[in-house]
């Protein structure tokens, strides 16, 4: 691989590894704490935010974080209460975010599909900077430390939040913290994967890992590995066939998910007693 001799590609590859690890790791909590809908909405508002950043020529990372934080503030409490029509809210949020994102991109000062606009839309390998790498490594470390320290709480909340609360665990603080971490992860991953597909990174690796294993402690290792593998494979596919890296990562992780579902030992007995 001739590309890999260049620092820019080495950096990009490293970025892929960390983004994949983070997405896979946080994704397990997002899926098991039933935060998928909020993760979904945050991903798309991060997209709209990044687009605004491009339009205003300010750092898209910053605007992406602000937008996903605002979404978390609005949708978080709704997700907390089962009786609010969360599906309706997220559907509306989706169209709103998409509309905003495309309007902002139209107003972007650069002409046509400049690299920045393209990166926000469907991701770009070369967009990853040293600063991004530092952020990613920092976020990875913080996330790992928190998971290690509060594993017991996270473990029981993922099993059943209400029962965790009934046992005297403060579930709210951990759920909100995971939403926060997911928001930052989404904003940081956006450059690589693109705003339209960033959600795949949170959802696909975790859902694949959950198909295979009966032990949460193993899932929490397998999911980031699947995430990183998807990103690395997507990276090379993108280079070889010259197609957007975000699409490659999303396609590969979806493929892994499909294979997982087919091979899943859990799928054979999928019944549910509604008793």
């Amino acid at each position: 691989m001739i590309y890999l001799e260049y620092a820019i590609f080495q950096r990009a590859l490293l970025g892929c590894v960390f983004i994949g690890l983070l997405g896979g790791l946080i994704g397990v909590f997002v899926v098991k704490m039933r935060l998928s809908t909020i993760g979904y909405s945050m991903s798309h508002s991060a997209f709209a935010g990044a687009a605004l950043g491009v339009a205003l020529s300010v750092d898209p990372l910053l605007t992406a974080i602000v937008f996903s934080a605002v979404t978390a503030v609005f949708i978080g409490p709704a997700a907390d209460k089962a009786r609010l029509p969360i599906d309706t809210i997220t559907s509306i949020a989706f169209s709103l975010n998409m509309a905003l994102a495309f309007i902002f991109l139209t107003f972007s000062p650069q002409i046509g599909l400049s690299s920045e606009v393209a990166s926000v839309l469907w991701g770009s390998i070369v967009s990853i900077t040293n600063r991004d790498l530092v952020y990613l490594i920092a976020l990875c470390s913080i996330t790992l430390a928190l998971i290690y320290l509060f594993w017991k709480e996270l473990f029981t909340i993922m099993f059943d939040r209400k029962m965790a609360e009934a046992d005297g665990v403060n579930t709210k603080i951990f759920v909100y913290f995971m939403i926060f971490l997911a928001g930052i992860t989404v904003a940081l991953s956006l450059k690589l994967v693109g705003g339209l597909l960033v959600y795949a990174l949170l959802f696909n690796p975790a859902s694949s890992a959950l198909q295979y294993l009966h032990d949460m402690r193993k899932i929490i290792f397998l999911s980031p590995i699947i995430g990183a593998a998807s990103c690395i494979a997507g990276f090379f596919t993108s280079l070889i066939f010259d197609i957007p890296v975000g699409s490659c990562i999303a396609l590969i992780s979806t493929l892994i998910f499909a294979v997982s579902v087919i091979l899943s030992p859990k799928r054979r007995r999928r019944w549910r007693n509604e008793g």
């Binding site: 709480e153 099993f159 029962m163 965790a164 046992d167 005297g168 949460m216 549910r272 008793g275």
Partner: peptide, 23 residues
Amino acid sequence: DFMVDPGEPYAALDVVLMGRYGK
């Protein structure tokens, strides 16, 4: 009526031990 999905990745002992987490 507490019932979990068949695929829940938790062993029975894990779940029993959770009772003590708050304490």
